[in-house]
Design a protein around this nucleic acid. Structure first.
Length: 268
DNA sequence: GCTGCATGATGAA
DNA sequence: TCATCCTGCAGCA
């Protein structure tokens, strides 16, 4: 599901299947017919992820921009794909597989200026190897200028990109930071810790293909791979349930139009 | 079959 | 802050 880890994983896995071979591109749903005809019977040279954005670069100079939004989904079939559904915006077929995309917020062929605009509006991406010169400095500069709760700041993609509603809640829990704390009142070193934790957690999510932020010892398991559904987060969607560390009831509030969860004891 | 909700983001008011 | 866009699914009758 679509936070930054999903997008970077999609770029990595789809590269193997779709880069460097001629593709058949169509829009079974019909809503991407024009774009598909621009790309059909050409090859992708690179699939690049920035935060929650994907850029497919084609051999004839076009760029396909995909943003999954809340509902977007990729489905990949190695062979014998089922028939596309009514919601299949994009179908891409190579000799190594078929990709279906449904429900994206954005699926468009864009020009270089627009790509620049999208990327330059993004803060540092914890999953990009070569990131901002100083990611922490960028984040601190922003946070020092605005008076927003840190929980809201983490959803602002121009501050740090790729974090979504699950990771914002889970990262703050793991660091013991209350989401309501005004971001410019964070303690020294907190931004560095937030950055480091984001790198750690998003990398883990990219590798696993799912968000698992709990440590085995906190959910009574010996191995991370054993962690069951419903045990993968500390606070996300756990209102009223006991904190896995201290037993206090998890609380929930609205923040920046989304729900946020926290443990009032572990995150004072 | 219907309702509500969801890991996102934007633009108007 | 609200309405809007995008889809799929669980939960309920």
């Amino acid at each position: 599901m679509p936070e930054g880890h999903t997008i970077h994983r999609a770029a990595r896995l789809q590269s193997k299947r779709f880069v460097g071979t001629e593709l058949r591109v169509s829009s079974p749903q019909g809503r991407f017919d024009e774009g598909a005809s621009l790309l059909d019977v050409h090859a992708v040279t690179e699939i690049d992820a920035w935060g929650k954005h994907l850029f497919y670069r084609w051999d004839h100079g076009h760029t396909l921009h995909v943003h999954l939004g809340l509902f977007g989904k990729f489905r990949i079939h190695a062979d014998d794909p089922p028939p596309p559904t009514d919601g299949t915006r994009l179908r891409m077929v190579s000799e190594r597989g078929t990709l279906y995309l449904s429900g994206p917020t954005d699926c468009r062929v864009i020009d270089p200026e627009e790509e620049d605009r999208i990327v330059s509006d993004l803060g540092p991406d914890p999953l990009r190897k070569k990131t901002h010169v100083s990611a922490v400095e960028h984040i601190e500069t922003y946070l020092g200028r605005r008076t927003v709760p840190i929980g809201a700041a983490l959803l602002d993609q121009s501050v740090i990109c790729g974090i979504g509603n699950v990771y914002r809640a889970e990262i703050l829990f793991r660091l013991g930071i209350n989401p309501h704390i005004e971001s410019r009142r964070l303690e020294a070193g907190d931004v560095q810790r937030i950055w480091d934790e984001s790198v750690t957690q998003l990398r883990l999510g990219e590798r696993n293909g799912r968000i698992v932020t709990t440590e085995p010892e906190d959910v009574g398991r010996r191995r991370r791979s054993d962690i069951a559904r419903g045990e993968r987060t500390y606070v996300y969607k756990r209102r009223g349930e006991p904190c896995r560390r201290c037993g206090t009831e998890i609380e929930r509030a609205d923040m920046k139009g989304r729900k946020i969860w926290w443990c009032p004891s572990c995150q004072p």
